[in-house]
Design a protein around this nucleic acid. Sequence first.
DNA 1: ACCCAGGCATTGG
DNA 2: CCAATGCATGGG
Length: 271
Amino acid sequence: MSFLALPPPYDFDLSTERFRAFGVDLANLWHEGGLHRIVGGREIRIERAPGGVDVDPLDDETRAVVLKLLGAEFELDPFYAWASGQPVLAGLVLRLAGFRPPLAPDPFESLVTSITAQQVSLFSAFAIRNRMTERFGDRGRHAYAFPARDRLARATEEQLVAVGFSVRKAEYVIGLARAEIDLDALAPLDDDEIRTRLTAIRGLGPWTAEWFLARHLARPRAWPAGDLVLRKAADVLYGLDVYELGRRLDPFQNLSAHYLLTGTRVVPAAA
DNA sequence: ACCCAGGCATTGG
DNA sequence: CCAATGCATGGG
């Protein structure tokens, strides 16, 4: 059990809320007060600790993945300073102080997760994704590794349909797994170039590309305007069109989106 | 038995 | 170019 510091402020319970909000997530498993995940073929456990987390076991690879997973790279101080003068967000950053949006450490996992969440409720998406993970991912003591890209490249549409995918989404996932694109090579590119390359792939639309920028690459200006919950928040909380709100939140669209979405769950009265 | 849910590609005008 | 349509499951 080794301590891993996170940049202050950091609130473990708020920052891991997403892993509990929609039921079980086998690849990011909440179990007995800690978060379990497979890193480098081994299961790790992450627990709350003052000023950061305790991680067991912890090596260099695990350190990097956990920092990514827990959103260590977000700069909260400039966001809070800006948000304190903003309607709605001023209240949310007080109520959600220390919330760091969790990120998807792996690009393929990020995209497949989004495909499963397209159009359907997140409860439904988690159920289907868990059956896929159980079927195609390696099992640890408690958690499962998210299915590897080369494993899904060898899967058949029928196998994915059997775990609850629509035929269309099964085609998307297998097509992505088998595509030529090097997903790690996207990281140095600018936002628009990444949007263009991702949406050229069948099954990856603007919403999916934007969440990739937001939840995998932590790009500050990523703004999933097509997101149903975000559109609703823009309308109900601001009385604005979601695109207009996105312009007003520049250059903090990503953190704003996460605070608005988490706020609707954690602070339903204020958001 | 409905209806909706953190989209997308496809088809038809 | 924009509107309409099908998709499969889980929860209400």
